[in-house]
């Protein structure tokens, strides 16, 4: 349990957007499961915290939601990416990639010096 990482501020939104981009419309439980699967159960996620985040993304216009029947024929709220959300995802991916590259380079230098 202790080696599970807390989610960094701001990255959860990116994960949600990416998940919806890949899998299409999905309910909250599905998103939570997917994030945990992809991370290989490395993330300590209180699944409930997804819902305020989903609401925020919806109010920002990045995603839209509607009620629909789930696989087991119960009512669930399905979230899907909007056009604005797709654009936001692209922009955030670019930013994230850039940051990761820079950090990666720094770490590489340290590695060479250490060896």
């Amino acid at each position: 349990m202790n080696d599970r990482a807390d989610i960094q501020q701001g990255t959860l939104a990116l994960m949600v957007l990416k998940t919806l981009d890949v899998l299409g419309p999905l309910h909250g439980y599905g998103i939570a499961r997917r994030i945990e699967q992809i991370s290989g159960d490395q993330l300590a996620l209180n699944q409930g915290t997804l819902y305020p985040l989903l609401l925020r993304l919806e109010q920002e216009g990045a995603i839209a939601s509607e009620w629909g029947p789930s696989e087991n024929n119960r009512r669930a709220r399905f979230y899907r990416l909007t056009r604005a959300g797709r654009k936001q995802l692209q922009a955030e991916l670019r930013d994230w990639q850039q940051t990761a590259d820079i950090i990666g380079r720094f770490l590489a230098i340290n590695g060479e010096a250490g060896s």
């Binding site: 209180n46 699944q47 409930g48 915290t49 819902y51 305020p52 609401l55 925020r56 109010q59």
Partner: peptide, 17 residues
């Protein structure tokens, strides 16, 4: 437990709303 502290999340949800 997995879902998290319901009341806190609910308040957060409400604050977001």
């Amino acid at each position: 437990l997995k879902f998290g502290a319901v009341e806190a999340i609910r308040e957060q949800y409400h604050a977001e709303k």
